[in-house]
Design a binder for these strands. Structure first.
Lengths: 152, 152
DNA sequence: CATGATTTTGATATCCATTTTCAATTGCAA
DNA sequence: TTGCAATTGAAAATGGATATCAAAATCATG
């Protein structure tokens, strides 16, 4: 009866011998419906609107769990704060990050990925993962002095 | 009489109305002669061998200063610790980072840079800076079970 | 449905890198 | 030398993330 994400969570928990709890389901629901990159703090604030009794620690723990379950991905950009993104399914992607309004745009580019492999090969290096982030001004913020924050 | 880096520092300090101090010169000298990426902690340990009275706070403050002076670049990789690299002159480069021994290899690739620009253009995004990191196993660590730590 | 072993939770303490505070010291122009 | 702003070192504060621990909740079992 629940949405797909929550079903996936239930499966994962059952498979790991972990328990299904109100908190875990609530946190996942809020996270998914937010539909954007969220820090643990932002997520906690959203969650508390629905269920004031859920604490920070539980949010942190749950997000780690969701990462293990493949339902969330941890991202840490320049500001040093870990943010989570909901990963419905698709593969790897990289990010454009607006330094003014915080907007995060995702992109994929196989040509770049291929070149990365060739660089690695030249250095006899075996790539396990990579991170590509482009920082700058998004279309909304170019040429503006002020802006409406999108994400903090 | 000093080396080039220290001369650059003196110029920068004079230009900013800041003072030349024993600590600042000592820290820069140690940093430059190390010739590799160093965290503030690693650098402090090295500095203390020469001059035990220099504290952490001064190292942090000085490295921030050197960054402003263009003599150092801050880098923060996945482990969340800020490291500094001495930048003699050359332009931008990216990194291959060994997840086993911590070795850091620098590389440049204009093709990748060009593709980044095209991605940005498609998204009407103005790039100010970027970060590309490839994590994996270096040539020494491929096929090994254990390794000799290079950094940390 | 009651039991009880095992998990989970929430509040709080702790960790760790970095920054700030502040009184004492130092650099340097006059 | 003197005077004052800049700098320093030690220690406290900060901030995000993790660990601790007693109380509460889950859930297989009887």
């Amino acid at each position: 009866m629940k949405n797909k994400a929550n079903e996936q969570l239930s499966e994962f928990l059952a498979g790991q011998g972990l328990k299904s709890t109100r908190q875990r389901n609530r946190i996942l629901s809020v996270f998914v419906s937010a539909g954007r990159h969220l820090s643990a703090e932002e997520l906690t604030l959203l969650v508390k609107k629905t269920d004031a009794g859920i604490g920070y620690a539980t949010v942190y723990r749950t997000m780690k769990l969701l990462s293990e379950a493949g339902l969330a991905h941890e991202r840490r950009f320049e500001d040093g704060v870990t943010r989570f993104e909901y990963n419905a399914s698709e593969g790897h992607h990289d990010h454009l990050i607006c330094t003014r309004c915080g907007r995060i745009i995702e992109f994929e580019n196989e040509q770049i990925e291929a070149l990365q492999q060739s660089v690695a090969k030249k250095n006899r290096f075996l790539v396990q993962s990579h991170k590509l982030e482009l920082y700058g001004l998004c279309s909304n913020c170019r040429g503006k002095r002020k802006s409406t924050p999108d994400v903090r």
